[in-house]
């Protein structure tokens, strides 16, 4: 493992974590979607770099899929949904941005503390890669928990999935078939979720999931 390959891989997956953290404090939907597209683009770069240093051409396909679907198709589709739903207003975060960011940083520290000792036998690149991937997954989960708007929950879910792909690309050996099927299932999930979003809006005049809870009679 020569220095440059390691440094670039490190840089790319590190920036993925950084963008995940950026996702946490976006309080407008458009900027959230833009940052998410950015996230996917960096994922594509990271996977492509892995393809290059591992000499694994099928990973280029993975990178291309990530770039095309997650970098372009999904953000554009979500943009149009937000436009048609007419929700360009501010997102309410539940916990508040400061504590969320602090918690996110704590999660990154936690995943590094967990992953580095566990993967001691693996080489340094894989170690770093897995630690970053876990932090991306945890940050995505955190986003799903803290957000109240259905669209931003979808974004959280998709960024979580990006973390999984990063881990798989670093671990040398996710077969292409699996990658493609995941990509398609994510796309189908997007379609289903989109349909649901419109259904929810038709029914309740909002996509704030808080209203769903109220409808179930759980909260006044």
């Amino acid at each position: 493992m020569h220095g440059l390959a390691f440094d670039v891989a490190h840089l790319l997956s590190g920036s993925l974590v950084l963008i995940s953290l950026m996702l946490l404090y976006q309080d407008r939907l458009y900027s959230l979607l833009n940052i998410f597209a950015f996230h996917a683009v960096f994922l594509a770069f990271a996977v492509a770099w892995q393809a290059f240093i591992q000499r694994a051409p099928h990973l280029y396909v993975t990178a291309a899929i990530a770039l095309a679907f997650k970098g372009i198709v999904i953000p554009v589709a979500l943009h149009r949904m937000v436009q048609r739903l007419g929700i360009h207003r501010q997102i309410e975060t539940v916990v508040g941005i400061g504590p969320t960011m602090l918690f996110g940083i704590g999660l990154v520290a936690l995943s590094i503390m967990v992953m580095l000792p566990v993967t001691e036998q693996a080489d340094a690149l894989t170690q770093e890669d897995l630690a970053f991937a876990l932090s991306v997954v945890l940050l995505g989960l955190l986003m799903m928990v803290t957000r109240r708007n259905a669209v931003s929950q979808i974004v959280g879910f998709m960024s979580l999935e990006n973390g999984l792909i990063l881990a798989a690309a670093g671990a040398k050996g996710m077969p292409l078939v699996v990658e493609i099927s995941i990509a398609f299932s994510v796309l189908i999930a997007l379609i289903v979720i989109g349909i649901f979003l419109f259904r929810i809006r038709e029914r309740f005049d909002t996509v704030d999931v808080h209203v769903l809870d109220r409808f179930r009679g759980e909260q006044p």
Binding site: L107, L110, S111, M113, V114, P117, V118, L138, L141, L142, M144, V145, R148, V209, L212, D213, R216, E218, Q219
Partner: peptide
Amino acid sequence: QFLTIRSYLALVFGALILLLSGLALWQ
């Protein structure tokens, strides 16, 4: 039995964090 979806997610998330912290401390 009667939590909201987000609370369930938060429970799963909390359990995951707890287990990971346990793993980190136990090592």
